[in-house]
């Protein structure tokens, strides 16, 4: 919970993921096509020869989707065989260190947010990327079933 965090500065929200879950950051020009992509599921990329399904973070949180053309900065998170790409578009990326978070109050969250730290710079939402992964699986299963 209080480990080092990678922070994605979206418009109106700061999302954090544990740095220990980050497998890599990939920059792509235009998001490669994923059959049946819909909702916030936006495409597929590769990281070290492994395919990674990508979701659009802005869209997952109810904002406008990133354009499919242009630069996409994708943060790939991994837990064992589970891989997911978080498309941050061109949003700035920074870090928040465990030491800084130790003193910050933490509230439990819901949905795709595990919880929220009250930091000096404002709220920092800890992303529940595994729930996002499950939702992505559900969406693509539904689309696959529509075949």
């Amino acid at each position: 919970m209080f480990g080092d965090k990678l922070v994605i500065q979206l418009e109106g929200a700061r999302l954090a993921v544990d740095t220990s879950a980050v497998a890599g950051i990939v920059e792509v020009d235009g998001m490669p096509f994923l059959p049946g992509r819909t909702g916030f599921v936006s495409g597929v990329i590769s990281l070290r020869n492994e395919p990674v399904t990508v979701i659009d973070l802005k869209m997952a949180f109810g904002a406008w989707p990133s354009p499919t053309k242009g630069t996409h900065r994708v943060i790939v998170v991994r837990d064992k065989a589970v891989l997911l790409g978080l498309d941050a578009g061109e949003a700035p990326i920074s870090f928040y260190w465990a030491e800084e978070l130790k003193t910050c109050p933490f509230r439990k969250g819901s949905g795709y947010i595990r919880g929220e730290f009250d930091t000096d710079d404002g709220p920092l939402s800890l992303l529940d990327w595994k729930t996002l992964f499950e939702e992505t699986t559900r969406i693509l299963h539904l689309e696959g079933g529509r075949g």
Binding site: S46, P51, V82, F133, T137, L140, H141, G144
Partner: peptide
């Protein structure tokens, strides 16, 4: 593999020499 395991119309994926899936 999940989450792509039930995509319609495709049976697998390869990564090309330039990294494109």
């Amino acid at each position: 593999l999940p989450p792509m395991s039930r995509l319609w119309g495709v049976a697998g994926i390869t990564i090309m020499g330039d990294g494109r899936p």
